[in-house]
Design a binder for these strands. Structure first.
Lengths: 384, 384
DNA sequence: AGGCGCAATGATTGCGCTATCATGAAGCGC
DNA sequence: GCGCTTCATGATAGCGCAATCATTGCGCCT
């Protein structure tokens, strides 16, 4: 280390003085403020060239994992963040991408935005956030934006399941990345979780608690993910050898209000289900509310589980057992991927779209429990 | 003219090839797009050095009128406009500010970020967004960031009410702007809404509906804003000539859970309050839940109002009547103010901190109504 | 073994602009 | 007229980063 330092100690060189941050740019001599850490500082810290750091930052390929990690560590240590001005100066142009949303669940949205905005600012891409309330509105918007120089679109559900929109984006020679689509289309980028498996796992979890009559509230039929969750539920029920009672499956639309309606229906069924699995947290929260209104304790009288782990899940009481989608990471990934694709495209490369499946986790909180004896099926459970 | 051209025609110089714009950068060889005209183009056209052009652009002194006119003409002719990125790069201008947050409410945050990021990109300042989960973590972060060259901090609640953090920022010779602090400290910038007046207005609104027994749930005592809201409530009650019953004021902590506890207490008071005003939306939502559990209809049996207009307010049912804080505008203002202050400081000016109060609005939704006859005070209301 | 091909990394250059200093040309008092 | 200060201008050197190309090292094929 010391050797390295003394090696480039000649004045007039490109280096700074010491290895400690506070000594940085000790006497840069000629010019200006000793300000933020630069890419060179990171490079020194990570023991590589600035160019390699740049590659890491821009998530280009051809960097060994070990190197990448070192660089990442250095970045974290120095609290480095790239200088926007220099970047757009050197790079030619700033990437501009739009984030369209048409999503009823506000809490989902906020997570979503967080991930995107944070990553966007980190990567110095310009993010245009636009809400649009219908598929046709989306069409107009996409066209306008693309003509206004937007090179890529990030599409959350349900937009990402809208073939029309997708086609239009492709036609306009822009790039689309879907976040959490029901199904990865071949033609565009996508980040998703395995909705089927997650719903399967959650259902197994509930079954494992001892429940047999498990209600399910389906999500918005326009979103393919809703189907997959339903299928996961069905498969788990089937695998456990449990009856799937059609009365215990009701349609919702991912909104709180629709969750209330669904829960009302489910809780009116006799015998009452001992657990309800809602396709998202908003509906689960609504279910808790309805249960409470009916003087049912959650989880002692009824187990309620959600999906998504939006912040509503942990801001109500009891806090929801739910599936945590790493929404933030997903959006961040989307931003990263889309900028990478835009850059690649600018360089004339023809990269086919990237896709990624991120891991979910089942977050166990306070809204689930074994069924109470009184509400238990008359016939004692036998299986597993 | 020709002489000038040939003068700097040696290779390795700084110049480009021809004098005509279309020939610009004829064979700069190595790099990139022939884009907009540069300062060098203007200089050539105006027959002077780039430096002089720069001076004209920045309206510095010491340029002869004749020269200035020539440059102006050249600028007009070429339709030149300076490149912002290059400018801030060279000028070392770029202000760097950090946005720390430690806020449980994701919806608040996304609004917050949106405002900040948008304004930051508009003003070409660099924003570093950092989450920190405790006051001590904040201390470390602030120190690191400041040493990393961050000149200013934007602090949302509750960080902005943390005197330790504030002191540290001051000590590190950085600038802090608080967004929505309870109270503007003399020593730093701040944007806020008039919490007192807003709570006052909301209380008046409820009173105007015909309520007299109005419960109040106080917020987190660590946030000064909580006090001011309480005071607004008290003042409005007093001005309306209504009794303030101590039983109808309970302590909360801005969390859903604390809202439930508060609501339980309030709804156990006899005679029961006909309205509850919670200091934020989370607690209001909890109040709605508790009311429902007690078979009380909102708003017909009881009015519930919140504060903040976070997205929980509109994602539960019934949607909450609440006070909307213009969070986005507030953050945008914060970014603007902080850059102004940083610039001033860089020039050695000692401007005292700026403060601004932005207007809030009372958003009326579905959780308020006139008190029903059965729960009305026995004695008919008389006053206004 | 020799050489080919490719992946990983480094060196160099320049994006467009301004800070800094150098230079030349006036002005000015004695 | 000589040194001196002013003003007007130019030359030079980066700002922090990424494009480009050069170099290194490594596996693999013949």
């Amino acid at each position: 280390m010391a050797a390295v330092m003394s090696d480039d100690e000649q004045p007039g060189g490109h280096q700074s003085g010491g290895s400690v941050a506070s000594v940085r740019r000790k006497q840069r001599g000629t010019r200006r403020h000793m300000g933020a850490p630069t890419i060179a500082d990171v490079a020194r810290e990570a023991n590589c060239s600035p160019m390699t750091v740049s590659r890491v930052i821009n998530s280009e390929g051809n960097v060994r994992d070990a190197t990448r990690d070192q660089v990442m560590a250095a970045i974290a240590k120095l609290n480095y963040s790239p200088n926007r001005a220099a970047r757009s100066l050197a790079g030619g142009e700033q990437a501009r991408i739009a984030l369209l949303f048409d999503n009823p669940s506000a809490s989902y949205l906020s997570e979503f935005l967080m991930g995107a905005l944070e990553e966007a600012s980190r990567r110095d891409v310009q993010l245009v956030v636009q809400s649009c309330d219908s598929s046709t509105a989306a069409m107009v918007l996409v066209r306008n934006l693309a003509e206004g120089g937007i090179q890529g679109f990030i599409l959350p559900p349900p937009l990402c399941d809208d073939q029309q929109v997708l086609d239009l984006v492709a036609e306009l020679d822009a790039i689309a990345v879907a976040v959490g689509p029901g199904k990865a289309q071949g033609s565009q980028g996508a980040v998703l979780i395995d909705d089927f498996q997650a719903a399967y796992d959650m259902t197994r979890h509930i079954i494992g608690l001892g429940h047999e009559r498990i209600g399910f509230i389906i999500g918005n039929p326009e979103q393919v993910a809703a189907d997959r969750r339903l299928n996961g539920y069905l498969a788990a029920m089937k695998d456990a050898g449990l009856d799937v009672n059609d009365n215990l499956i009701v349609q919702g639309r991912f909104t709180y209000r629709s969750g209330m309606d669904g829960a009302e229906k489910l809780l009116s069924v006799t015998p009452r289900p001992t657990a309800i699995f809602a396709s998202n947290d908003d509906m689960a929260a609504a279910t808790v509310a309805v249960a409470h209104r009916r003087q049912l304790d959650v989880p002692n009288d009824i187990t309620v589980c959600g999906f998504d782990d939006t912040d509503m899940a942990s801001s109500i009481w009891p806090e929801l057992t739910t599936i945590r989608q790493p929404i933030r990471e997903m959006t961040a990934w989307a931003v990263e991927a889309i900028t990478r694709m835009i850059r690649a495209k600018r360089r004339g490369e023809r990269s086919r779209p990237e896709q990624e499946t991120l891991p979910y986790t089942l977050v166990r909180r306070e809204s689930d429990a074994a069924p109470s004896l009184t509400t238990r099926p008359t016939q004692p459970r036998t299986g597993r």
